[in-house]
Structures are given as C-alpha cells and as structure tokens.
C-alpha cells in the first residue's frame, strides 16, 4: 500500500519496539504451556501468547516493510542479536511463580490496551488498523490478568502475600513503559505514534482500582530500571533469546 505524500513517515524503529515488546512477552509467557495450574488456564495462557505473537508478527512485518531492506518478520525475530532488541525489560523477566506472571501480564497488557486504543488514531494507516484490531484482544488479556490478581490478592493469607510480593517485585520495571525517548517524541510529534508518558495516569488509575479490589497495596514509585529501549537487557533475556532462535540459526529457512 502506498501512503499519500501528505502522510508523515513512520520510523521503522517505532513499530519494531512495539513488536519486540509483544514478541518477547509471548515467548516468555508460553513457558507456562503444559505447566499451568489447571487445563483451562493452560489453554487461556496459550491463547494470550498466540494473540501477542500475532501482534508481534504484524508489527515486525510492518517495521521491515518501512525499513525497505528486505528484512521480514523471521529475519527480525530470529537473526538479530541481544542488544538489537528494543523491548522493555519487564517482558523478559523470569515468570517466577504464578502471581509474578499475573502481575506482569496485568501491568503489561493494561499498558498495551491503552496504547493500542490511542494508536488506532495513528496517521500511519497500517499501524492504526493493527491497533484497532489488537485493542479488542488486549481487553480480554487485561480482564483475565485482573481476575487472577483479585482472586489471589483477596484469597488466602498465602496467596495474598505472594500476590503482593509479585506486585512489589514487578512494579519498578513498569516505569520504562512510560518513559519516552527521542523516538517516541518524534513519533508523537508527527502523529504516527504517541508519547507513552501520557498513558500513565489512566494506567495508574486502572491498576489502582484492580489492586484495591484485590485488597493489595499500590507500591510507591522508587527505583526505575530502564535501558531496554536502548538494547540493554537483564541476564534472563540471553537465555530466552538463545532458546527462541536456536532452531532457526541451526537450520536457516527451516519449514514444517
């Protein structure tokens, strides 16, 4: 599709970072596959992974087309090195116990739902169409994560304690979702993207509502690790990426 000349150009790195967020979140979450506490939960998490992977494929494909150097979704997912990935560290963190996984899912998919809701009005028609589709999927993801957060937080003494610990552990990593850099600011300025800082008030309001319902305490803002957008990742990411890319690197172009 050829964009009209009046449309500002989308920087390829912009959909790429959003695609990296979705891809690595999917890859990490699918480690629950065949390990979830119940069969229904196993199916639910696999479904969510599939949605996230679908978002990642569309976003990486779009980034590759914008870039115009012939890199498709597979090249971008399987042949980049660790420091070329620009997702936030939140999505690569180990799954921990089920409470940690649900805290990550709640924080991340609530961000995604708000992000996609706004990106549906992007001046980039392809990005707008993807976002309008993805926002409906995200609503199911946040509903699922919120339901578990409430069930565990307002459950037994043990589940409450572990859910609070999960929220406290993951909270610092959420700040990077809302910290704009030059790329975000440029995308917001030309209408192709949005400034993520503008999402935080509504995100905080929604998360606070869920945590209160779950009888949990909203953590104070303090330590705010960052660097994911610049390719700086935690130790956990190297292991995840190696496993994700091993087959493709050993057998380039392998097909089922």
């Amino acid at each position: 599709m050829t964009a009209p000349r009046t449309t500002p150009a989308t920087a390829p790195a912009y959909p790429l970072r959003l695609g990296d967020d979705a891809l690595i979140a999917a890859q990490r979450l699918l480690q629950w596959c065949a390990r979830a506490p119940q069969l229904e939960e196993d199916v639910a998490l696999a479904n969510i992974c599939l949605d996230l992977l679908g978002q990642a494929r569309a976003l990486l494909t779009h980034a590759g087309e914008l870039e115009g150097r012939g890199r498709d979704e597979d090249t971008l997912a399987f042949l980049r090195t660790e420091q070329e990935f620009t997702h936030v560290q939140l999505v690569e963190l180990d799954n921990g116990d089920f409470a940690v996984s649900m805290a990550k899912l709640l924080f991340f998919t609530t961000y995604q739902e708000l992000l996609y809701g706004r990106l549906a009005a992007s001046t980039d028609p392809a990005l707008a169409a993807l976002a309008a589709k993805a926002v409906k999927e995200s609503a199911y993801h946040t509903g699922h994560a919120a339901a578990w957060t409430v069930r565990l937080g307002d459950g037994t003494e043990e589940s409450h304690h572990r859910m609070q610990h999960a929220v406290d552990t993951i909270w610092p990593y959420t700040h990077a979702l809302f910290t704009p850099d030059a790329l975000d600011r440029a995308a917001a300025a030309n209408g192709t993207g949005i400034d993520p800082a503008t999402l935080r008030p509504l995100w905080h309001e929604r998360i606070t509502r869920t945590l209160k319902e779950a009888t949990l305490t909203v953590p104070d803002d303090g330590w705010a690790p960052g660097g994911g957008r610049q390719g700086i990742h935690t130790e956990a990411f190297g292991y995840l990426l190696t496993e994700m890319q091993a087959l493709h690197r050993a057998h380039p172009g392998a097909r089922w």
Binding site: E40, A44, A46, Y140
Partner: peptide, 13 residues
C-alpha cells in the same frame, strides 16, 4: 462461563 479462552482464539467454553 467455564473459561473465556476456549478451543480456538475466537471461542469461549
């Protein structure tokens, strides 16, 4: 509703 995520992405059980 038993589970919102069913046998396929578009179905609930």
């Amino acid at each position: 509703e038993l589970t919102r995520f069913g046998s396929t992405a578009c179905k609930a059980l």
